[in-house]
Nucleic acid binder design. Structure first.
Lengths: 199, 199
DNA sequence: CAAGTTACAAATTTTGACATCTGTCACCAA
DNA sequence: TTGGTGACAGATGTCAAAATTTGTAACTTG
């Protein structure tokens, strides 16, 4: 007996997100998802090739949800690039702190994917790197940064702020002084980016 | 019947290190250590208050083993501070890479202690920070660095190079490009440290 | 008394039988 | 043909019993 509602990918994703939130990434099964939808678990496999693929789709949706916030900051040409860079790096930290606080289970799911080198994670950092490169390119254009290759420079800045954006440090983001720490690192990096070319 | 050799702390540490190497940190028990020494496990407890204390003592010894290498680089006043800082940061990475490669079990044991916020770990980073501060102080003294507080600056530099010294990134140290990455971050940081005071 | 022993309770780990989950299949219905 | 089903094998997870380990204590010996 086929289900009344045709069951599309989005419905499955929503149910999965709910199950993930309730059970956590380790205990959430595709059988649970199917049960929540009132179908057999094989039906889910008609839409997603594997549990991994399902998790990736949910996580991608979840990450995209507030991707705009950061993009907006990165693209805000009203703010000079020097300040914008600092603001953006703080915003990245703030967004991740918020996600981990509001959705610890989905955050954990993301962590699992990142550990497995899923494209969800690499795509996400590629996105962030692109935004960062845009800020740096703006700065190079108006002369406030000395950076011949914006993308390469973005990677360097991102690496130097790994403590504030890399999942491996998520536990440390609870620390109250973390914002001040980022500020200090920002200051040093901005000094380096603004330094006049030494012949 | 008391053991022929009186069994001192150092003998226990050597045996523990051996057991740890053979069994790994999760499977190494103090019963194993006692068996290797031909005594009852209670004898070990006469010298070390707990398994934790024993592990810490072994790990501390293991860390101290080549602490001198880095200290030597940090204190080598024949090398100008700018180059010395870069060399030292690379050496920190190299030492950790070597340790993880030659002694993965003991490295894992260190990781466990670090995760448990053991003083072994905090003392170790305090030691490294001291060496780093010394280099920066030298640079401030001879005018090559602009740093009013060498210790604070050392902390910032250490944080900005977290990817190359923090345990959480150990897996990435296998990556062949890691040395080049550190080099790029070093260059940016050195630009910042050398920048002339800007107002 | 310093350094070891055996004996023991409590916590932890291992084990092994059992249940569930993942992914695939052949089949069914609109 | 798209979207669904139930049945299945093999991998993985669960859970309680059994074994081991941790840490302590009362006891022994030079």
């Amino acid at each position: 007996m086929p289900a009344r509602t045709p069951l599309d990918a989005n419905t499955i994703l929503a149910a999965t997100e709910e199950i993930l939130r309730r059970h956590g990434p380790d205990k959430a099964t595709v059988v649970d998802v199917a049960r929540a939808l009132g179908v057999s678990h094989a039906a889910v496999y008609k839409h997603f090739a594997s549990k991994q693929a399902l998790r990736e789709a949910v996580t991608r949706r979840w990450l995209d949800h507030n991707r705009g916030t950061l993009a907006l900051i990165a693209a805000d040409s009203a703010v000079p690039p020097v300040r914008r860079l600092r603001t953006w790096l703080h915003a990245v930290l703030a967004v991740k702190q918020a996600k981990i606080r509001e959705d610890p289970e989905l955050f954990a799911a993301y962590g699992i994917l990142a550990a497995a080198h899923s494209s969800v994670a690499t795509d996400h950092v590629a996105d962030l790197l692109g935004q960062l490169a845009a800020i740096i390119a703006d700065g190079a254009a108006d002369g406030s940064f000395r950076a011949d290759d914006a993308e390469a420079t973005a990677r360097v800045v991102f690496r130097a702020t790994a403590k504030f954006n890399h999942l491996a440090h998520a536990a440390e983001w609870q620390n109250p002084g973390i914002g001040a720490e980022l500020d200090e690192v920002c200051s040093l990096l901005l000094q380096g980016l603004q330094a006049p070319t030494s012949p």
